[in-house]
Write a protein that binds this DNA or RNA. Structure first.
Lengths: 206, 206
DNA sequence: GGAAAAATTAAACAATTGTTTAAATTTTGG
DNA sequence: CCAAAATTTAAACAATTGTTTAATTTTTCC
């Protein structure tokens, strides 16, 4: 009956690689089969259709995409420490998966996956208690009066965008990949200072 | 010989609309022809190929994309005023062309247009003297010690990303399009304060 | 070891892709 | 008005698309 787990996994790995770099519309199932080193029919044998295979890859990518938050948020740290750690961790993570932000946003943008985000993505984040911690800090005057949604947008902008804009930025400034990566590291430190300075009200008021 | 200018323009308008929303790979030439309301062959009659037509649209989009900077940069304002105006103008512009940032970054990301950015895009910006103005302000201690490249990355992150992340953000917070647009306006004001506070050294030092 | 089950393949499927051809229509200019 | 030029169309092109079928190979299990 069951035979070799690794074929199914090999297809998933190949599909991930191809979908990530070329997008759903930018590749054919034969591109993926070639990456696997085998027949097209095999993909449909294991995963019914290109679309189903894509959905699987997308779900996994979205999970990875959100995962890095959860570890930080569920730790026992002050809000400020969490923000700093989040920025650090996200940068480290996206350094290793630089295509991820573009893949997620582009896929959502093209309605390839239109359903509202499943609760199994969102609940783990809510369950960390991060939202309550934030509201409490705000009530106690430690944090500026700003909505959690705007904080999120601020963080995501500064953490996701740089990885999506690599080609534009390299062309715009005429710099190399290595130079861009240097800028990226500086950006990380800038963003940490920028955002914490803005969000957290210093109590050295006299 | 020459007949009706508007057919060529109608095709360009249709191509722009379709390419912008679906991307190069996400649409067929027949999609565009249908949008025009005429035959497929007509596209190749005016624009040789799908790829050539795309390049034309992309060039125009990139031009629009960078245009909003130039007007601000070449004005007679202080650096701080220019930064504030830039953020304002870019937000206003992208409110009317929300698909533009995603289109540009996605197209570059997929290597649809691989050539280095033509100088006719970059020179007008350099010619505004903005870079010199920035270095001078830095030398005079008005501005924090930060590279122009990092300032650019900071600005672009906070100005482009929100328009690219609409679907992600709406799903993430479970909010409507109108609510997102509200957040967007708040984000604009936050970013203005955030960035100017960070960049410009206040001389109220006692 | 050998039959049943699972995995893999090659081949074909209809549909769609970008492009071209050649004919038909419209516009131009004398 | 009428030929020549420009525009527009319908149809066909070969190539590629996602998927399915049926045959073949490999694995499983008694």
């Amino acid at each position: 009956m069951k035979r070799d787990q690794s074929t199914e996994e090999k297809i998933k790995a190949a599909a991930k690689k191809v979908f990530m770099t070329k997008g759903f519309d930018g590749c054919s199932v034969r591109d993926i089969a070639k990456e696997v080193g085998s027949n097209v029919a095999l993909l449909n044998y294991y995963f019914r259709s290109k679309e189903k295979l894509f959905e699987l890859i997308f779900e996994g990518a979205m999970s990875d995409f959100l995962q890095s938050m959860i570890a930080v948020f569920s730790s026992e740290l002050t809000l400020k420490e969490k923000v700093e750690q989040l920025i650090d961790k996200e940068f480290t993570f996206f350094m290793e998966h630089p295509e991820l932000p573009m893949f997620i946003l582009q896929s959502l943008h093209q309605n390839k996956t239109d359903a509202p985000m499943p609760s199994h993505f969102l609940e783990p984040i809510a369950n960390t208690g991060i939202f309550e911690q934030f509201e409490k800090a705000k009530a106690q005057g430690e944090v500026r009066d700003i909505s959690i949604r705007n904080v999120t947008l601020l963080l995501m902008s500064n953490v996701h965008y740089p990885f999506m804009s690599k080609k534009l930025t390299m062309q715009f400034h005429g710099i190399s990949s290595a130079e861009f990566d240097d800028d990226l590291n500086k950006h990380k430190e800038i963003v940490k200072e920028l955002i914490t300075n803005y969000l957290f009200i210093s109590n050295t008021k006299a």
